[in-house]
Amino acid sequence: MPVLLVFLGGMLGAPLRYLTDKAIQGRHDSVFPLGTFTVNIAGSLILGALAGAVTAHGLPGGVMLLLGTGVCGALTTFSTFSFETIRLLEDGSLAEAGLNALGSLLVGLGAATAGYAFLTWL
């Protein structure tokens, strides 16, 4: 049963990542990978909120498997983040590569912390 929950969540998260990335990138004429950045930050916020809900409100493990591991696992993408950062470096876009790497780390941690803090506060 746990594998099925992760599988179902992944079936939701993967197309959500693809569609969100394409919608955002299609609206911006920039070398910065804003679509990937956005899904990774959103996933960090959601995962932090889910962790807060588990801690403070006893969110069932099955919900965490479905939404946290499944949806957020498929929504976020470390491999694409890494590839896009390397591509920016290879193209000579050093500022964008640095912003992507450092920004993803700092904003992602901030989003996860905010999500966790908000759900434990509720």
Score class of each variant (00 low, 15 high):
residue 70 G to D: 11
residue 58 G to P: 06
residue 42 A to G: 01
residue 48 G to N: 15
residue 7 F to Q: 09
residue 13 G to H: 02
residue 12 L to A: 12
residue 25 Q to E: 00
residue 90 E to V: 12
residue 97 A to F: 05
residue 10 G to H: 07
residue 63 V to F: 12
residue 17 R to W: 01
residue 8 L to K: 06
residue 70 G to V: 01
residue 15 P to Q: 01
residue 66 L to N: 11
residue 47 L to F: 15
residue 98 G to K: 11
residue 111 A to M: 11
residue 117 A to N: 09
residue 54 V to Y: 06
residue 22 K to E: 01
residue 24 I to D: 02
residue 114 A to V: 10
residue 3 V to R: 09
residue 75 L to R: 10
residue 58 G to E: 10
residue 57 H to T: 09
residue 56 A to Y: 06
residue 3 V to C: 14
residue 30 S to C: 00
residue 114 A to C: 14
residue 87 R to K: 15
residue 122 L to M: 15
residue 31 V to M: 00
residue 60 P to C: 13
residue 14 A to V: 13
residue 98 G to F: 14
residue 42 A to H: 00
residue 116 Y to Q: 15
residue 77 T to S: 14
residue 95 A to W: 10
residue 24 I to C: 04
residue 68 G to Y: 08
residue 36 T to G: 02
residue 77 T to K: 13
residue 114 A to K: 07
residue 18 Y to A: 03
residue 10 G to R: 11
residue 49 A to I: 12
residue 94 L to S: 07
residue 11 M to C: 15
residue 38 T to D: 06
residue 25 Q to M: 01
residue 26 G to D: 02
residue 103 G to F: 12
residue 82 S to T: 15
residue 118 F to R: 09
residue 79 S to H: 05
residue 58 G to Q: 10
residue 68 G to N: 09
residue 46 I to R: 04
residue 20 T to H: 02
residue 7 F to G: 10
